[in-house]
Write a protein that binds this DNA or RNA. Sequence first.
DNA 1: CGAATCTTGTAAAACGTTTCAAAACGAATG
DNA 2: CATTCGTTTTGAAACGTTTTACAAGATTCG
Lengths: 351, 351
Amino acid sequence: MATIRDVAKLAGVSVATVSNSVNDPGRVSEQLRSRVLKAIETLNYAPRAAARSLRKQSSGLLGLIVADITNPFFTELVQAVEGIASQQGFSVLLCNSDEDPAREEKHLQVLRSQWVDGIILATTGDVSLSRSSLLSQIRVPVVLVDRAFDGLGLDAVVLDNRLAAHQATEHLIRRGHRRIGLLSGPTSVTTGADRLTGYREALLASQIRFDPGLVLEAGFREQQAYDATVALMRLPQPPTAVFAANNLMAIGMMRALSDLGLRCPDDVSVISIDDFAWANVFRPKLTTVAQPVREMGEMAVKLLTDRINGHRSGTGSTHMLESRLVIRESCAAPVQATQPAPARAEAAPSR
Amino acid sequence: MATIRDVAKLAGVSVATVSNSVNDPGRVSEQLRSRVLKAIETLNYAPRAAARSLRKQSSGLLGLIVADITNPFFTELVQAVEGIASQQGFSVLLCNSDEDPAREEKHLQVLRSQWVDGIILATTGDVSLSRSSLLSQIRVPVVLVDRAFDGLGLDAVVLDNRLAAHQATEHLIRRGHRRIGLLSGPTSVTTGADRLTGYREALLASQIRFDPGLVLEAGFREQQAYDATVALMRLPQPPTAVFAANNLMAIGMMRALSDLGLRCPDDVSVISIDDFAWANVFRPKLTTVAQPVREMGEMAVKLLTDRINGHRSGTGSTHMLESRLVIRESCAAPVQATQPAPARAEAAPSR
DNA sequence: CGAATCTTGTAAAACGTTTCAAAACGAATG
DNA sequence: CATTCGTTTTGAAACGTTTTACAAGATTCG
């Protein structure tokens, strides 16, 4: 309620002095400053962000758009970003697009007119032309996270998805599996496509023939993964292990296996990308490939604030972080323990 | 970049007309309006929120403070609030206090100077004097959620915690349990205290003597619940069932039981308050008492916007929502199946 | 002692909107 | 024809800060 004028009047100084004693203490004598501070105290004065940002041409706000806040990966990302941002004096405007490109677009519009100082965007779905043009109209710094795309020269921080998928697949291969199912994310987004690539590379490295029938593409959500798992296990010759491309899909997969009466890891081994707090409360405890979520959030904020402060300019680059295999209990040797295969896998007719 | 002046110039009208054709279309002729709209389009103009809210004395921002965003209850609450708020044209400033009263206070300060139109507060811990005085200094509407407190006459939307605890306890009793452990939250907060009360009331209703040795108070987090569960099960005569006061505690409890080599529900039955998306992925599937989280979020936003719009005034009231028992697999009859007890429980010396 | 230099304080302009009050313009009325 | 009355349009005043440019003293220096 109290304005800077009131403070000035009470302290018997000009408004400029009030502003200075708060924002540039060096410019005002100690005596006046303390008088001003006392006046602020008694009036319980707080400057209005709107007026301040109008004048300073910066709002102290960061926009954060995530694809699905109930996904533990994003939840943790939000936690990290909010923590660091607020530590650095920024507030964060949270937007949840719920995997809906239309909502994402609307959120971008809002952020644009809110005139946030920067945006961290975990974009949903693939990049439509309209969105990329909207993005390019936005004059504030944007850093992409989790899912990247080229063409706009934006900074991005992403997982080394090929490595992650490679690690997961290789772990299963080491345990002796040769028929490994993949619950793939949509290949229209980088995370989906790259993880598929990593899977294939791992197979190739172990000279296992890639069987397209073993990879089912689904959305990144639980139910689709459930259905895909059922389909996979009903194959004439089902996989002995399944690799789920993210956490939600892992959950759908676990639920499906359990409903099918399949024991894990006795009947089928499972692994997934995305570690999360309760992975070790599931029975069996889930073996996963963990993303350095917190680090990703930190790096995104760092890149963003660097740009905001002008410490960074020019066209952006993609920063790739490494995943880490977390071995727990969900991977065992396949039932008919195939011996570590001889050079040619095709030798054994697989029908 | 483009300002309202630029639009006015391009369209050949005054700034007032530009403003009107956007905000009060009725006041301007169809012809001019379309000219203005076209100018806006070609200049890609978006009004600056800062200027607008300075003039209108309202920011279109809602503050949302939660105690722990990684707690699925709060995650879902955030999702609900963000969804409805943005649907109503508000953006939400997310603050995570991480169960730290100091951070909560700092967030309140920030929200105050951001001059948000309203605040939804899931307060952490008990209400210290300093916080309640800070809260009372804030001139914007505040609605409490999850944890209420009196004295400031604020609106609040909470679960009927006594009912919830009653339902949980009663369910165990019906299954034949008479020694029921309670992993209680801190009784310094309403959710902790009321759930304890509900537990006792349920015992009383079935004429089971309350045994203080069976209730262990812990924080609302996982690790403390883990420790408490271990302590509980190492009692000379351990409980045959345990009731955890929230979701995180349930998880700690499950982990502890599993580490102790106890099978659930064979060796011990468990139930908890807070349902969450993966409760049915755990083995066994968790029987829980669900909160209507989404509804709580909706109601909180409704109460808040009603106050903001002046549809609601005067001192606030507490709105209590009902919980719902969700029966799954984690509750069975106790091992030495005690028959539905005769009138006097004390008859059978329990040592 | 006058001039130059610091220090400390202030008046006033700007930031980009919305909105009030009045102007401009026709049309209708007496 | 002069008034009155609606309808559109507009000029200008807010909103509450920060910041620039300057003023007024105090201090140092030549």
